[in-house]
Amino acid sequence: MQIRVEDLSMIYNPGLPYETRALDHISVDIKPGEFVAIIGHTGSGKTTLVQQIAGLLEPTSGRVVAVAEDGTETVISEKGKASFAVRRKVGIVFQYPEYQLFEETVLKDVCFGPKNQGLSEEEQIERAKTALKLVGMDADEIGGESPFELSGGQKRRVAIAGVLAMDPEVLILDEPTAGLDPKGHDDILRMIDRIQDDRNITIILVSHNMDDVAEYADTVLVMNKGSLFMQGDPRYVYCERGRELKSVGLDLPAGPGFLEDLQDLGLDVDIEKLTFDETAEEIIRVVKKKWQ
Protein backbone atom coordinates (compact mmCIF):
# COMPACT_ATOMS: atom_id res chain seq x y z
CA MET A 1 0.00 0.00 0.00
CA GLN A 2 1.38 3.32 -1.07
CA ILE A 3 0.50 6.55 0.76
CA ARG A 4 0.03 9.60 -1.38
CA VAL A 5 -0.23 13.01 0.24
CA GLU A 6 -1.72 15.48 -2.27
CA ASP A 7 -1.45 19.24 -1.78
CA LEU A 8 -2.41 18.90 1.86
CA SER A 9 -3.06 22.00 3.98
CA MET A 10 -4.23 22.29 7.53
CA ILE A 11 -5.22 25.53 9.18
CA TYR A 12 -6.05 25.57 12.89
CA ASN A 13 -8.55 28.22 14.06
CA PRO A 14 -9.22 29.65 10.59
CA GLY A 15 -10.40 33.28 10.66
CA LEU A 16 -9.47 33.74 14.32
CA PRO A 17 -6.55 35.82 15.60
CA TYR A 18 -4.84 32.55 16.55
CA GLU A 19 -5.06 31.20 12.99
CA THR A 20 -2.11 28.87 12.40
CA ARG A 21 -1.15 27.25 9.14
CA ALA A 22 0.10 23.93 10.45
CA LEU A 23 0.54 22.33 7.02
CA ASP A 24 1.08 24.32 3.87
CA HIS A 25 0.48 22.51 0.56
CA ILE A 26 2.34 19.29 1.31
CA SER A 27 2.72 16.68 -1.44
CA VAL A 28 4.70 13.51 -0.92
CA ASP A 29 4.61 9.82 -1.89
CA ILE A 30 5.50 7.11 0.57
CA LYS A 31 6.32 3.78 -1.06
CA PRO A 32 5.28 0.42 0.38
CA GLY A 33 7.89 -0.97 2.78
CA GLU A 34 9.84 2.29 2.96
CA PHE A 35 11.40 3.57 6.20
CA VAL A 36 10.56 7.27 6.26
CA ALA A 37 11.73 9.67 8.96
CA ILE A 38 10.09 13.04 9.54
CA ILE A 39 12.28 15.65 11.21
CA GLY A 40 11.74 19.31 12.11
CA HIS A 41 11.39 21.68 15.06
CA THR A 42 8.63 21.40 17.61
CA GLY A 43 5.64 23.07 15.95
CA SER A 44 6.86 22.48 12.39
CA GLY A 45 3.86 20.30 11.52
CA LYS A 46 5.33 16.80 11.97
CA THR A 47 2.63 15.51 14.26
CA THR A 48 -0.18 17.17 12.29
CA LEU A 49 1.10 15.48 9.13
CA VAL A 50 1.23 12.00 10.63
CA GLN A 51 -2.22 12.45 12.17
CA GLN A 52 -3.52 13.23 8.68
CA ILE A 53 -1.81 10.15 7.28
CA ALA A 54 -3.43 8.08 10.00
CA GLY A 55 -6.84 9.56 9.11
CA LEU A 56 -7.31 11.14 12.53
CA LEU A 57 -7.62 14.76 11.41
CA GLU A 58 -9.57 16.34 8.60
CA PRO A 59 -7.47 18.63 6.43
CA THR A 60 -8.51 22.13 5.39
CA SER A 61 -7.71 21.26 1.76
CA GLY A 62 -5.95 18.55 -0.20
CA ARG A 63 -6.11 14.87 0.68
CA VAL A 64 -4.29 11.73 1.69
CA VAL A 65 -4.98 8.56 -0.31
CA ALA A 66 -3.94 4.95 0.03
CA VAL A 67 -3.05 3.32 -3.27
CA ALA A 68 -3.35 -0.48 -3.27
CA GLU A 69 -1.07 -2.74 -5.30
CA ASP A 70 -3.67 -3.00 -8.07
CA GLY A 71 -3.92 0.78 -8.30
CA THR A 72 -7.21 1.22 -6.42
CA GLU A 73 -7.30 4.47 -4.50
CA THR A 74 -8.99 4.90 -1.14
CA VAL A 75 -9.24 8.24 0.58
CA ILE A 76 -7.68 8.28 4.05
CA SER A 77 -8.42 11.90 4.81
CA GLU A 78 -10.08 14.70 2.95
CA LYS A 79 -12.31 17.57 4.07
CA GLY A 80 -15.61 16.07 5.22
CA LYS A 81 -14.40 12.49 4.75
CA ALA A 82 -12.54 9.90 6.74
CA SER A 83 -12.23 6.24 5.95
CA PHE A 84 -12.38 3.79 8.82
CA ALA A 85 -11.51 0.91 6.53
CA VAL A 86 -8.15 2.45 5.66
CA ARG A 87 -7.54 3.71 9.15
CA ARG A 88 -7.14 0.09 10.16
CA LYS A 89 -4.32 -0.31 7.67
CA VAL A 90 -2.44 2.60 9.21
CA GLY A 91 -1.39 2.14 12.83
CA ILE A 92 -0.15 5.06 14.89
CA VAL A 93 1.88 4.92 18.10
CA PHE A 94 1.59 8.24 19.92
CA GLN A 95 4.17 9.91 22.13
CA TYR A 96 4.44 8.23 25.53
CA PRO A 97 2.07 5.44 24.42
CA GLU A 98 2.45 3.63 27.75
CA TYR A 99 0.00 6.13 29.26
CA GLN A 100 -2.66 4.50 27.09
CA LEU A 101 -2.27 1.06 28.63
CA PHE A 102 -5.37 0.32 30.68
CA GLU A 103 -6.20 -3.39 30.86
CA GLU A 104 -5.63 -5.80 33.74
CA THR A 105 -3.19 -7.96 31.82
CA VAL A 106 -0.69 -7.46 29.05
CA LEU A 107 -2.47 -9.95 26.80
CA LYS A 108 -5.87 -8.28 27.24
CA ASP A 109 -4.37 -4.90 26.50
CA VAL A 110 -2.81 -6.07 23.25
CA CYS A 111 -6.09 -7.82 22.31
CA PHE A 112 -8.07 -4.59 22.57
CA GLY A 113 -7.40 -3.44 18.99
CA PRO A 114 -8.20 -6.77 17.26
CA LYS A 115 -11.28 -7.08 19.50
CA ASN A 116 -12.55 -3.75 18.18
CA GLN A 117 -11.85 -4.95 14.68
CA GLY A 118 -14.46 -7.66 15.36
CA LEU A 119 -12.12 -10.66 15.36
CA SER A 120 -13.00 -13.84 17.25
CA GLU A 121 -11.38 -14.37 20.63
CA GLU A 122 -9.10 -17.04 19.22
CA GLU A 123 -7.93 -14.76 16.45
CA GLN A 124 -7.45 -11.89 18.91
CA ILE A 125 -5.16 -14.00 21.06
CA GLU A 126 -3.27 -15.28 18.03
CA ARG A 127 -2.74 -11.71 16.84
CA ALA A 128 -1.69 -10.53 20.30
CA LYS A 129 0.83 -13.34 20.68
CA THR A 130 2.36 -12.62 17.30
CA ALA A 131 2.52 -8.89 18.04
CA LEU A 132 4.17 -9.45 21.42
CA LYS A 133 6.70 -11.71 19.76
CA LEU A 134 7.45 -8.98 17.22
CA VAL A 135 8.30 -6.56 20.02
CA GLY A 136 10.52 -9.18 21.62
CA MET A 137 8.18 -10.30 24.43
CA ASP A 138 6.91 -13.76 25.25
CA ALA A 139 3.12 -13.87 25.69
CA ASP A 140 3.30 -17.07 27.78
CA GLU A 141 5.77 -15.50 30.14
CA ILE A 142 4.40 -11.98 30.50
CA GLY A 143 0.86 -12.09 29.03
CA GLY A 144 -0.80 -12.59 32.40
CA GLU A 145 1.00 -9.78 34.18
CA SER A 146 -0.35 -6.32 34.82
CA PRO A 147 1.06 -3.88 32.25
CA PHE A 148 1.62 -1.41 35.08
CA GLU A 149 4.17 -3.67 36.76
CA LEU A 150 6.52 -3.54 33.79
CA SER A 151 9.55 -1.27 33.29
CA GLY A 152 9.25 1.87 31.16
CA GLY A 153 10.80 0.28 28.09
CA GLN A 154 8.67 -2.86 28.42
CA LYS A 155 5.46 -0.83 28.81
CA ARG A 156 6.28 1.01 25.65
CA ARG A 157 6.85 -2.25 23.78
CA VAL A 158 3.48 -3.57 24.96
CA ALA A 159 1.83 -0.36 23.71
CA ILE A 160 3.49 -0.78 20.32
CA ALA A 161 2.38 -4.44 20.25
CA GLY A 162 -1.19 -3.19 20.77
CA VAL A 163 -0.96 -1.28 17.50
CA LEU A 164 0.85 -4.09 15.64
CA ALA A 165 -1.89 -6.53 16.68
CA MET A 166 -4.23 -4.66 14.32
CA ASP A 167 -1.95 -5.86 11.52
CA PRO A 168 -1.27 -2.46 9.91
CA GLU A 169 0.49 -2.04 6.57
CA VAL A 170 1.82 1.32 7.68
CA LEU A 171 3.19 1.91 11.17
CA ILE A 172 3.60 5.49 12.35
CA LEU A 173 5.68 6.15 15.47
CA ASP A 174 5.77 9.64 17.00
CA GLU A 175 9.04 9.94 18.94
CA PRO A 176 8.93 6.38 20.23
CA THR A 177 12.11 6.64 22.30
CA ALA A 178 11.43 9.88 24.24
CA GLY A 179 12.36 9.52 27.90
CA LEU A 180 13.92 6.05 27.59
CA ASP A 181 17.42 5.27 28.82
CA PRO A 182 20.13 4.62 26.19
CA LYS A 183 19.61 0.86 26.20
CA GLY A 184 15.82 1.16 25.97
CA HIS A 185 16.30 3.65 23.16
CA ASP A 186 18.52 1.32 21.12
CA ASP A 187 16.24 -1.66 21.80
CA ILE A 188 13.17 0.14 20.45
CA LEU A 189 14.94 1.31 17.30
CA ARG A 190 16.40 -2.08 16.51
CA MET A 191 12.97 -3.56 17.10
CA ILE A 192 11.34 -1.13 14.64
CA ASP A 193 13.99 -1.94 12.07
CA ARG A 194 13.41 -5.66 12.53
CA ILE A 195 9.63 -5.29 12.24
CA GLN A 196 10.10 -3.43 8.96
CA ASP A 197 12.29 -6.25 7.64
CA ASP A 198 10.13 -9.14 8.91
CA ARG A 199 6.77 -7.75 7.95
CA ASN A 200 7.76 -5.52 5.08
CA ILE A 201 5.52 -2.80 6.45
CA THR A 202 6.01 0.92 5.89
CA ILE A 203 7.54 2.76 8.84
CA ILE A 204 7.00 6.47 9.39
CA LEU A 205 9.16 7.67 12.28
CA VAL A 206 8.85 11.16 13.76
CA SER A 207 12.16 11.92 15.45
CA HIS A 208 14.44 14.60 16.82
CA ASN A 209 17.39 12.24 16.88
CA MET A 210 19.44 12.80 13.73
CA ASP A 211 21.80 9.90 14.48
CA ASP A 212 18.89 7.46 14.48
CA VAL A 213 17.47 8.97 11.31
CA ALA A 214 20.84 8.77 9.54
CA GLU A 215 21.25 5.15 10.57
CA TYR A 216 17.80 3.74 9.84
CA ALA A 217 15.80 5.86 7.38
CA ASP A 218 15.56 5.32 3.62
CA THR A 219 13.99 8.73 3.13
CA VAL A 220 14.00 11.85 5.29
CA LEU A 221 11.22 14.44 5.15
CA VAL A 222 12.26 17.77 6.65
CA MET A 223 9.39 19.93 7.87
CA ASN A 224 9.83 23.62 8.54
CA LYS A 225 7.02 26.01 9.54
CA GLY A 226 4.34 23.78 8.04
CA SER A 227 6.11 23.28 4.70
CA LEU A 228 8.05 20.34 3.34
CA PHE A 229 11.47 21.97 3.38
CA MET A 230 13.52 19.13 1.93
CA GLN A 231 13.30 15.44 1.16
CA GLY A 232 15.79 12.79 0.16
CA ASP A 233 17.96 10.03 1.55
CA PRO A 234 20.06 10.75 4.67
CA ARG A 235 23.20 11.36 2.65
CA TYR A 236 21.47 13.98 0.53
CA VAL A 237 19.78 15.75 3.44
CA TYR A 238 22.66 15.69 5.93
CA CYS A 239 25.68 15.85 3.64
CA GLU A 240 24.82 17.61 0.41
CA ARG A 241 22.37 20.02 2.02
CA GLY A 242 23.66 20.00 5.59
CA ARG A 243 24.38 23.72 5.65
CA GLU A 244 20.79 24.53 4.66
CA LEU A 245 19.49 22.22 7.33
CA LYS A 246 21.59 24.06 9.90
CA SER A 247 20.39 27.41 8.55
CA VAL A 248 16.88 26.61 9.81
CA GLY A 249 18.29 25.61 13.19
CA LEU A 250 18.20 21.83 12.79
CA ASP A 251 21.03 19.60 13.91
CA LEU A 252 23.21 17.29 11.85
CA PRO A 253 24.07 13.75 12.96
CA ALA A 254 27.11 13.62 15.26
CA GLY A 255 29.63 12.82 12.47
CA PRO A 256 28.88 15.55 9.91
CA GLY A 257 28.02 17.96 12.73
CA PHE A 258 31.49 17.51 14.23
CA LEU A 259 33.17 17.88 10.82
CA GLU A 260 31.35 21.17 10.35
CA ASP A 261 32.60 22.40 13.74
CA LEU A 262 36.13 21.47 12.68
CA GLN A 263 35.68 23.30 9.40
CA ASP A 264 34.41 26.38 11.23
CA LEU A 265 37.56 26.24 13.39
CA GLY A 266 39.65 26.33 10.21
CA LEU A 267 40.46 22.67 9.63
CA ASP A 268 40.27 21.77 5.93
CA VAL A 269 37.91 18.76 6.16
CA ASP A 270 35.40 17.48 3.63
CA ILE A 271 32.08 17.63 5.50
CA GLU A 272 30.16 15.33 3.17
CA LYS A 273 30.54 12.26 5.37
CA LEU A 274 27.71 10.51 7.12
CA THR A 275 28.75 7.55 9.25
CA PHE A 276 31.05 7.41 12.25
CA ASP A 277 33.73 5.50 10.32
CA GLU A 278 33.68 7.89 7.38
CA THR A 279 34.00 10.81 9.77
CA ALA A 280 36.91 9.19 11.60
CA GLU A 281 38.74 8.43 8.35
CA GLU A 282 38.37 12.01 7.18
CA ILE A 283 39.69 13.41 10.47
CA ILE A 284 42.65 10.99 10.47
CA ARG A 285 43.49 11.92 6.87
CA VAL A 286 43.40 15.67 7.47
CA VAL A 287 45.01 15.75 10.91
CA LYS A 288 47.90 13.47 9.89
CA LYS A 289 48.57 15.65 6.87
CA LYS A 290 48.49 18.79 8.98
CA TRP A 291 50.78 17.42 11.70
CA GLN A 292 53.39 16.00 9.35
Binding site: D181, P182, K183, D186, A254, G255, F258, F276, T279, A280, I283, I284, V287, K288
Partner: peptide, 21 residues
Protein backbone atom coordinates in the same frame (compact mmCIF):
# COMPACT_ATOMS: atom_id res chain seq x y z
CA UNK B 1 28.73 -0.38 32.48
CA UNK B 2 26.20 -1.73 30.01
CA UNK B 3 23.62 1.00 30.56
CA UNK B 4 25.85 3.72 29.19
CA UNK B 5 26.12 5.07 25.70
CA UNK B 6 29.57 6.48 25.27
CA UNK B 7 29.40 10.08 23.94
CA UNK B 8 30.42 10.67 20.34
CA UNK B 9 33.58 12.57 21.35
CA UNK B 10 34.77 9.68 23.52
CA UNK B 11 34.35 7.01 20.84
CA UNK B 12 35.88 9.32 18.23
CA UNK B 13 38.88 10.04 20.47
CA UNK B 14 39.31 6.29 20.96
CA UNK B 15 39.22 5.65 17.22
CA UNK B 16 41.73 8.44 16.58
CA UNK B 17 44.09 7.02 19.22
CA UNK B 18 43.93 3.60 17.54
CA UNK B 19 45.07 5.36 14.39
CA UNK B 20 48.05 7.10 15.89
CA UNK B 21 46.53 10.46 16.85
Amino acid sequence: LGVLNVPFAVSMARKLRENGI
